[in-house]
């Protein structure tokens, strides 16, 4: 877009878009034009699964202040969980795609 400030990180998780959950494999983080937030630029995060096509996307658009507070909050929550010894982690590697038909 007009700033082209964008980075991608590989992630492991699941996201929900509509009624179904799906595996999210990448997070695209940009500071550029949002689609819906009424600002010229925003901190946009798209949780996607590129292998599933452009529609596999969970999007959030945040103001700068909201984005900074979110980062701090994530760090604080992870720190507290670590302190209490309840962190449960696994490496960011591809996991088997969940077959909704098998559920």
């Amino acid at each position: 877009m007009c700033t082209m400030i964008a980075q991608q990180v590989k992630i492991l998780g699941r996201g929900k878009s509509g009624p179904e959950w799906f595996d999210v494999r990448e997070a695209n983080v940009s500071y550029d034009h949002p689609y819906d937030l009424p600002l010229e630029h925003a901190l946009n995060i798209d949780f996607v699964n590129e292998a599933m096509g452009p529609g596999a996307r969970v999007a959030v658009e945040l103001s700068v202040d909201a984005a900074r507070q979110l980062v701090q909050t994530i760090q604080a929550v992870l720190a507290e969980a670590d302190q209490r010894g309840v962190l449960e982690d696994c490496p960011v590697v591809p996991v088997p795609v969940r077959d909704p038909a098998a559920a």
Partner: peptide
């Protein structure tokens, strides 16, 4: 860049830097 809603495809291109 694939097909879908203009917004989803646009977001994909945004992530790729245009």
């Amino acid at each position: 860049d694939g097909h879908g809603t203009p917004e989803d495809v646009g977001a994909k291109v945004r992530a790729a830097g245009g």
